[in-house]
């Protein structure tokens, strides 16, 4: 009799355990929809991400402004920024430069970044005369289309950021050829005091 009562009390317990297992299905965790870069059995190439049809232009990214989008006007590199130069733009340029470019070009632009130290071909220093004399549009063009061993970075860096980087490269160039007389008097006095 005792063993019978144990058995009857075990049934609800087993049933509860069974209910526990019911929650082990993952239907709602993995819904039949495509997540970013997930595999797909529907498309022949096995990817849920679809390639862009030929000649489509993302909304708002039509290349209508040559100076802004290709860094040239009438086939000649622009020499001026196609937007206003602001401290914010330069700061953005510095941030992007140090994230994307400094790996090879080095933080000061001397072409001795970490990847170069690992054996990548040495890029020219920004502080060479020919680089200092290069028109601004040239830097934009190189970021967009690559140059020599450098691959195009158009997919990684948006046009606005490419200009910010180009502007920051100019600032780097200036930093290595700065004239003390161009400094504000208080900064110059401080510098002179420190160098004595």
């Amino acid at each position: 009799m005792i063993s019978l009562s144990i058995r009857t009390s075990l049934y609800p317990l087993c049933f509860c355990g069974f209910l526990f297992l019911c929650a082990c299905r993952h239907d709602m965790m993995n819904e039949p929809r495509a997540k970013t870069f997930s595999q797909s059995e529907f498309f022949k190439d096995g990817a849920s991400a679809r390639p862009l049809p030929a000649n489509v232009v993302p909304r708002g990214e039509a290349q209508v402004n040559d100076a802004f989008h290709i860094g040239m006007t009438n086939g000649v590199y622009v020499t001026q920024l196609p937007m206003q130069l602001t401290p914010k733009l330069l700061a953005r340029g510095r941030e992007r430069f140090e994230a994307i470019c400094a790996e090879c070009h080095g933080r000061t632009g001397d072409g001795n970044g970490m990847v170069v130290q690992r054996g990548f071909p040495v890029p020219p220093s920004y502080h060479l005369d020919r680089m200092r004399n290069a028109p601004l549009g040239h830097f934009f063009d190189v970021i967009t289309n690559g140059y020599g061993a450098m691959f195009p970075y158009a997919a990684q860096v948006e046009p606005q950021d490419r200009w910010a980087i180009a502007a920051y490269i100019r600032a780097l160039q200036l930093s290595q050829h700065a004239n003390p007389n161009d400094l504000p008097p208080d900064v110059r006095n401080k510098l002179e005091a420190e160098s004595k």
Partner: peptide, 24 residues
């Protein structure tokens, strides 16, 4: 190597998905 996160995960600042680098 000191490579920044955003060198490869390019869309982390503008999209849901941080982005996976292409083989390129």
């Amino acid at each position: 190597d000191g490579i920044d996160c955003r060198y490869c995960h390019t869309s982390v600042e503008k999209s849901r998905f941080a982005g996976m680098p292409t083989s390129e």
